[in-house]
């Protein structure tokens, strides 16, 4: 292909990247919305871990597109404040480990994230209503955090490798 071809030149690569990240965000939204079991069993954490392994800091792009779409779907509430930082915590935790490919390691990372999810969500309550309210909120939701931890661990253990291979393949095909 010639260098003037939009498929190979700079603007083409940026366009392909834009489309890819939009698609990755859409995948997160779809999997979250079609989840028939709502109680903190989700594949979003697994997807974020895979995205970080493949795209490093650019994983923030689909994450924040996802947050924007969710806010557009459900309106701005206190959970929106949680979403503004909570998924980024997972990206930041995954970044230094992104060169490792052990599904067990990533299952543990996702599991720890699930376990800490409630504590991370309690942060706004600390500023709104004080430490007591934040701790009460966290403790009230602990049993859901246990479910979240187990679900994240299991889903990531099973899906990390196939998702990684699929998205890595797509990235190479698009020459990104």
């Amino acid at each position: 292909m010639s260098s003037s071809c939009p498929h190979t030149n700079g603007s083409g690569a940026k366009l392909r990247q834009l489309i890819l990240f939009a698609l990755l965000a859409a995948i997160m939204v779809v999997f979250k919305e079609v989840n028939p079991i709502r109680m903190n069993i989700e594949i979003v954490s697994t997807l974020i871990v895979v995205y970080t392994c493949i795209f490093a800091w650019r994983a923030f792009i689909p994450v924040y597109v996802f947050v924007f779409v969710e806010t557009a779907l459900y309106g701005f509430e206190i959970w929106t404040i949680n979403y503004l930082y909570i998924w980024s915590v997972l990206v930041l935790a995954a970044l230094p480990l992104r060169n490792y490919r052990s599904p067990v390691l990533w299952a543990v990372v996702a599991g720890v994230f699930g376990l800490l999810f409630g504590a991370l969500c309690a942060i706004p309550y600390f500023f709104i209503s004080g430490a007591g309210a934040a701790v009460a909120y966290w403790i009230d939701g602990l049993k859901f955090d246990f479910i979240h931890c187990a679900a994240n661990f299991t889903l990531t253990l099973v899906l990390y490798r196939p998702l990684y291979k699929l998205i890595e393949y797509g990235k190479k095909q698009l020459n990104i």
Partner: peptide, 13 residues
């Protein structure tokens, strides 16, 4: 690293 991570998860749990 995997072992440290697993230990951290067990302790936290």
């Amino acid at each position: 690293i995997v072992l440290i991570a697993v230990l951290a998860l067990v302790v936290l749990l």
